[in-house]
Structure formats: structure tokens, C-alpha cells
Design a protein around this nucleic acid. Sequence first.
DNA 1: TCTACTATTGATCACACGATCAATAAGTTG
DNA 2: CAACTTATTGATCGTGTGATCAATAGTAGA
Lengths: 208, 208
Amino acid sequence: MSRPARKKAARKSAAERSVEIADAACAVALEHGLYAVTLRGVAAQVDVAPALVAHYEPNMDALVANTFGTIVARELAEVGELVAERESPRTRLALLLETLLDGSRDDVTLIWVEAWALGRRNEALAERVRAEMDDWRTFLQAIIEAGIASGEFETDDAASVAWQVLGMIDGLNAHALVSWEDSGDRGTRIGHAVEGMLGLHRGVLAEP
Amino acid sequence: MSRPARKKAARKSAAERSVEIADAACAVALEHGLYAVTLRGVAAQVDVAPALVAHYEPNMDALVANTFGTIVARELAEVGELVAERESPRTRLALLLETLLDGSRDDVTLIWVEAWALGRRNEALAERVRAEMDDWRTFLQAIIEAGIASGEFETDDAASVAWQVLGMIDGLNAHALVSWEDSGDRGTRIGHAVEGMLGLHRGVLAEP
DNA sequence: TCTACTATTGATCACACGATCAATAAGTTG
DNA sequence: CAACTTATTGATCGTGTGATCAATAGTAGA
């Protein structure tokens, strides 16, 4: 599978190699987690000398932080695009919960969990984590406020509700990361929880 | 603060030293996280040679797993004792949410988050994590089932609700671990979420 | 074609990790 | 007091980490 003996790396432009390394870091992170994003790990992914990775990155903390940010921002963009197709805030929220809790993004969940832990040693990462969490909160808050404006939702603090819904999602996904056995039915009852926070009648969120 | 030069360690019985090392591992974990539970880290805490820690533990994976288990089981015992004072399942549940979300146990939250991440490399830890999560679920499930029996709660799957409530709690706490700014109001609206899952009227959970 | 530039590398350093082992010294027992 | 047991240690090994630097080789421009 792997090539234990690497002969030579094709010479590429700095810009090209730079994005190649960033992409490789993302690939390594999604495959083996943020902890595997090391000088040697990324270098092996690109099939290049470890020193080259160090040459293109100021330090590994920065690469890890940027890798986290890239992966998470991409996820937000994807989910945002997906959800935008729905008409009402209610159906958008329902689709958001469904797609984030169906287990199809467990690799990104691992990234989140590791980032929370790693953020205590990597200040650049911690800052990035806070920024991305805020982007997610803003995104969800907009949906909720639209629902308030249309009279579908009822709450006096959309920001706080958005914050808590995201916490619930991440917590459920993190749990599923470890004990995969009960992971099948996550997302079924969270609808009721969100309905409770938004003053909706029971089961409304699941209706088409 | 620290003693850079250690002269000699008082000779103690094997049993005594063994618990001393286990306690030190817990102290290190609560102070600096599970990642700081290393041969040298624990040895420094006990003020003893690193080799002695290795002498008393089969390997570090086991010590980390046991340290996690000890801390989390102790937390469950404490919370269980606290909550048992309340009369009804509803007030027990309300107190449970309050005490787990008031930020007084952030050190344990860090342990949980790190355990989820570390569990992918440490199989003994992963097993312990699943066991402790199951203990928590069983504990909360008993409260919910008592509420169903008394007619206060309404749900057709207490185990699943217990699972999801714990997920919500852990997720909110994990978020607070990173962006402490908004951590003040966590726990205020989660009541509404739980009310939604248990068929309660809005605000009932917060009533005395 | 010759030269200047620069992408790439091998070698190496300092550090922290887990782990092992022979040697030592503090108790304990006879 | 001697012999034995064992808690404790220093030294050491192998591995993995981030980081630096002089040397090399491929490329583009004069």
C-alpha cells in the first residue's frame, strides 16, 4: 500500500504545493483525526519530506488550526446550501437536525471533539474553534429568527436557543462517536426537545 | 513551587503507594486533563521516580482508563446522592439539570471530552467510557421511569430520552469548555427542551 | 548556454513519551 | 545481629514529536 522508499518529489510551484499540503492535512484529519496532523503524517500523505511541510507552514499549531477551520467551514457551507432549498424556517430546521444527526458526518464530529480538547494547548486552534462555533450559531440563529418573524417559532432569545440546539447536536454526535450501538435512533426525539424550546406543538417539526 | 531536586521517597507499603498513585493520577487529570496523566506527570505529582509509577501500573493506558473511571464514577455518586434528597421525579430531574449545567464541574467535562477523543487510541479507556456512559444512562432512566409511573412524564422510550438528555448536557458543557463567554445562561432553556421530550407543559420543570 | 532562484531534502537537535532492568537501600523476619 | 524481602531508583533504550539548516537539484530567465 504505502511506499516505504520515496525517490523524489516532483517540483511544483509554491502556491500549488501549499494547497496540496493543506488538502493533505484535511485528508489526514478526516481519516485519522486532528491528532494525526503531524509533520511526518502530513508529509507521508503528500509523499514528501517532513521538512517540506515545515517549510510551508509557520508551525504545526497553525496548520492544525487551519485544517480544523477549513473542514468545519466547508461543512457549514454544505449544510447551508442543502437547507436553503426548503421553504419555511420550520422545514429548514427539521432538515438541519436530520442531516446533522444521521451519522453521515461522524468524521467531522471527531474533528470537533478533538478540537475542544486540543484547544486547551493550541491557542490558535482555540480561537478558530470559537470563531467557527460563532458562525454556526449565527447561521442557526437566522433560521430561528425567520421562524419568529413568520410566527412559527416562539422564543425571546433566538441566540440562546441556537446556542443550545447546537450543543445538543454536538453532544449527541459525540456520544454516538463512542458507543455506536445506540446511534440508530439519535435524532428521533430531539425534535420534541427543539419543539419545547420553540413553543411548538409536539410532533410539528416532523410534519412535511 | 516545584521541587526540582528530589532527595528520596519515603518507603511505603505497596497498597498505600498504589492508592497514592491512583489519587495522584486523578489530581493530575482534574487539574490538567487526561493527556497530562503520563508516567512523568504522575510521578512528579507523587514526588517519586517515574519508574515507580510504571512499577505499580501494568501500563499507562490502564492507569488513564482507571483514572477516568474513578473520576466519573465519583461524580455520578455525588450527583446521585444530591438528587436523592428531592421528592418527586420532576424536582429530581430539575435539580440534576441545574447541578450538571452550572459550570461547577468543568474539570470533569474536560475529562469526558478528552476521553471521547483518547478512546480511539486507548481501547481500555474506550471500554470504560462506554461503561460509565451506560451507568449514567441507567441512573437518569430510573428517574424518568419513576416520573412515568407517577404520571408526571410522558414518553414511550425512557432509555432513549435519558440518552438524549445526557447528550444535550454533555454537548452544552463541552461548548462552554471552549467559549466560556456565553456559558452563563446554559441550563435556563434546556428545561424547555426536556419538557418537550417528556410531554410537560412549558416552564413546569422550573417550578418549585 | 549560463546564471540566479528556489523547491526540496537529509541530517540533526532537543524534548517527551512508555517501558525495562540491574542496583540499592529501607524494612522485616529469623 | 544477620539474612531476607521488596520498595525505590538511575540509567538507558526506542519511538515520535516539532524545528532548523546547509546542501542539492530542478526551473526559469538573461
